[in-house]
Design a protein around this nucleic acid. Structure first.
Length: 737
DNA sequence: AAAGGATGAATTTTT
DNA sequence: TTCATCCTTT
């Protein structure tokens, strides 16, 4: 045994109490920056090293893969890499492994396919089209979220369609069909992974006993984000001994829209009797100024525990506030500040730009590149959700699971091989008639002499292609298989031949996928499972596809010194010396959707969630926090006006300082379009003029004024009435006086 | 059957 | 604005 006291080094009293608490239910409320991951990882180390718990009796569950990776590497830092067999995984990752092992008990084929969000949506779309369902005005998206939310409440289609609410009237039958089709095809969506796991644990005593014997200690990160099914999951895996540790902060609960129940923090004690409660209230991250401002904002929420988060980092720089004229102005302010900070010695990697929605990243992308600032956007269109990658993966899928219909449909004519709509219809009809998979139907049509050659020939080639790839790959490693598939599927040549700006990176991405495959093998070499995985690459395909759908995977391309851009949701758990929280406007933060749908009390709790989002953003900052907003923003190509976020008013004025540009020299060199109406003379001439706008039609100018480098013009349109427009951004045509 | 143009719709957050 | 789908032409 190593020196156990090392595990407690540098911890404060509460942290220590949490780490060494005896086995039994333990709830840790951990304010922002209070060292929650430290406590969790040290507790794992403590259980193993001091309490002598066998590592393989421990499960730690997180929500994101990022958090799981982080925790894993920190535990390894404490214990060394050798003592591997503790499980640190996401709810979904762990449950997926569980289902693969117990697929028979779960009633699933061994090679069941995980549908990610996109797959699920297009599958629903297909069902609607193929069966000509009447969906009224429901979008696939609504149907999708209906199904998922029912599953998260452990409601199967049969139970849900008994519900009398009007949503179930319309969508219940679709849920039923969806459920049936998924079962036939061995398709499992994200919600299903958890629901299926819970059902197996509830019904199968053998499996339950096995799990209870195997796993004793469960630790849960971000407990405030648990939803109903995850609580059930926790009960099933943890309540035999009640050795459950949960860490959370209800002020950082930002997944209510996904069914998270922050109140689970309150009910923990009633689920697991005799819970010990430890509060971590010392913040190690931010200055007093930042912390006080954030506390002041979050204290407006009614639905929370009062808490006393403190720091010994007294004082600190005031929070800078910049109210920009428009979105360009805002992005330029941020870019300049970043450039100035960098020039003063602050590495880019110490700074980040946080925003509410992905859509906001665009402007910053453009401005930052024109300022030559290296940056990296988290999320956005993720690598594995790119079309070409999904296509290549579909070939892989078809090799191990030829009956996979979504994969079949995805690539049947990708690249184009003369199998158009008509041929595909024949396949689908045949599959439905004979009750077989699309691939089997294709084989039948190939054999069918009464069928037209025009239809049989291309199908024959396709079937031969897949069969050929399967046998070609028997001796190859995973990455070689991917390379082989990219070439022989014709995808690579196809994108290469198109030779357009959009398709050029697709070839690179396909090649990058080979590396991703190699990477996957390497990082999973150390894992318990993987020796046989390396020798036959085909065995690695399913685990690889799983990891690809379950893990968004933005781990690669670690550039040395880059600025980070991400949404507030993605920022949770991270910290940066300098944070730019942009888009501090009503309709953005709080987001418009949070205030427009639902009953007044729903709206209130939605706004509270937005406030928590704001709180999360502010508390990411260690030393400096910048808040920016803009009066005019472009959406849909139309300029809308915005008012300052209400959350700004909730920050005591003494913590704020108005920020200004260091220099405005470059302002004039920016690429303003041809129309520039800066001079007073021109402004005076504008009123009364007739103009035509490409969206609003014709109208008369009421007045015009110059502000910053732009011109605001008020126009009375014949069709839509009065509008304010920034002349430089709109395409206005002058048609007379 | 495929490609290219026209028309219409949509933007919150994620495992 | 951009993306997807539909409809036309080849």
């Amino acid at each position: 045994m190593t020196d156990v006291t090392k595990i407690l080094d540098g911890l404060n009293e509460q942290q220590r109490e949490a780490v060494v608490a005896p086995a039994g239910p333990l709830l840790i409320t951990a304010g922002a920056g209070s060292g929650k991951t430290t406590v969790l990882t040290r507790r794992i180390a403590w259980l193993i090293e001091a309490s002598g718990i066998s590592p393989h009796r421990i499960i730690a569950v997180t929500f994101t893969n990022k958090a799981a990776r982080e925790m894993k590497s920190r535990v390894e830092g404490l214990l060394g890499r050798s003592s591997a067999p503790y499980q640190i995984a996401t709810f979904h990752g762990f449950s997926n492994r569980f289902l693969r092992i117990h697929h028979e008990a779960a009633g699933l084929p061994r090679d069941f396919t995980i549908l990610d969000q996109d797959d699920q949506k297009s599958f629903i779309n297909r069902l609607i089209k193929d069966n000509q369902l009447n969906v009224r005005n429901k979008t696939p998206r609504e149907i999708q979220s209906y199904i998922n939310s029912k599953k998260e409440q452990q409601l199967r289609a049969a139970q849900a369609s008994g519900d009398s609410d009007f949503r179930s009237q319309i969508m219940g039958p679709i849920y039923e069909l969806y459920e049936r089709e998924c079962n036939i095809r061995g398709l499992v969506d994200f919600a299903e992974i958890l629901l299926r796991t819970v059902e197996v644990m509830q019904r199968n005593q053998l499996v339950r006993n096995e799990m209870h014997e195997r796993y004793h200690h469960i630790l849960v990160d971000e407990f405030q984000d648990t939803n109903a099914i995850q609580i059930e999951w926790l009960k099933l895996f943890g309540s035999h001994l009640n050795y459950v540790t949960a860490v959370g902060d209800e002020d950082q609960s930002i997944y209510g829209w996904r069914g998270a129940v922050a109140k689970n923090m309150l009910s923990f004690g009633s689920i697991f009797p005799n819970t010990r409660l430890v509060r971590l209230e010392k913040n190690y991250r931010s200055t007093q100024t930042i912390l006080s401002a954030a506390n002041s904002v979050i204290s407006r929420n009614r639905d929370r525990f009062e808490k006393n988060l403190w720091t010994d980092r007294e004082g600190g720089d005031p929070i800078s506030y910049y109210s920009a004229y428009d979105y360009r102005d805002e992005s330029q302010f941020v870019a300049r500040k970043i450039r100035a900070l960098y020039a003063a010695g602050m590495p880019y990697s110490n700074m980040s730009i946080l925003y509410r929605t992905h859509a906001q990243s665009n402007i910053f992308e453009n401005t930052l590149s024109s300022y030559k600032i290296p940056f990296r956007i988290y999320g956005g269109v993720r690598f594995f959700s790119r079309m070409e990658i999904k296509n290549s993966l579909a070939y892989l899928r078809l090799m191990v699971d030829p009956d996979n219909n979504p994969a079949f449909q995805r690539i049947i004519n990708e690249p184009p091989r003369g199998i158009g709509e008509i041929t595909q219809r024949r396949v689908i009809e045949c599959a439905q008639r004979e009750d077989v998979s699309f691939m089997q139907a294709a084989r039948m049509i190939v054999q069918d002499e009464s069928e037209q050659m025009r239809i049989r020939k291309p199908l024959k080639d396709f079937v031969g292609l897949i069969d050929g790839m399967e046998s070609d790959c028997s001796e190859l490693t995973l990455s070689r298989i991917i390379a082989h598939v990219n070439v022989h599927s014709g995808l690579r040549a196809y994108y290469l031949s198109k030779d357009t700006e959009i398709d050029k990176p697709r070839v690179e991405n396909l090649d990058e996928l080979i590396n991703a495959g190699e990477n996957f093998i390497r990082t999973n070499m150390d894992d318990t499972t993987s020796n046989e995985v390396v020798s036959d690459g085909r065995e690695a395909i399913t685990p690889f596809l799983d990891s690809v759908t379950l893990d968004a995977g933005d781990t690669f391309d670690e550039a040395p010194d880059t600025l980070s851009l991400m949404t507030l949701h993605q920022a949770k758990g991270l910290e940066f010396p300098v944070v730019f929280l942009v888009g501090m406007d009503e309709k953005l933060l709080p987001h418009a959707n949070s205030m427009t749908f639902g009953t007044p009390s729903q709206i209130n709790s939605q706004i509270e969630e937005e406030r928590r989002l704001c709180y999360v953003g502010m508390t990411r900052a260690q030393d400096q926090l910048y808040l920016t907003r803009a009066s005019f923003r472009l959406s849909f190509g139309v300029l809308n006006s915005y008012r300052p976020s209400r959350f700004l008013n909730e920050i005591p004025i003494e913590y704020l300082q108005k920020a200004i540009f260091e220099s405005d020299i470059e302002q004039s060199s920016s690429d303003t379009p041809a129309l520039t109406f800066g001079s007073e003379e021109e402004l005076e001439n504008l009123p009364g003029k007739l103009v035509r706008h490409n969206k609003f039609g014709e109208g008369t100018v009421i007045d015009a004024k110059a502000e910053h480098s732009c011109t605001i013009i008020r126009i009375n349109f014949e069709d839509v009435g009065e509008k304010q427009i920034v002349m430089e951004h709109a395409s206005l045509e002058f048609v007379g006086n």
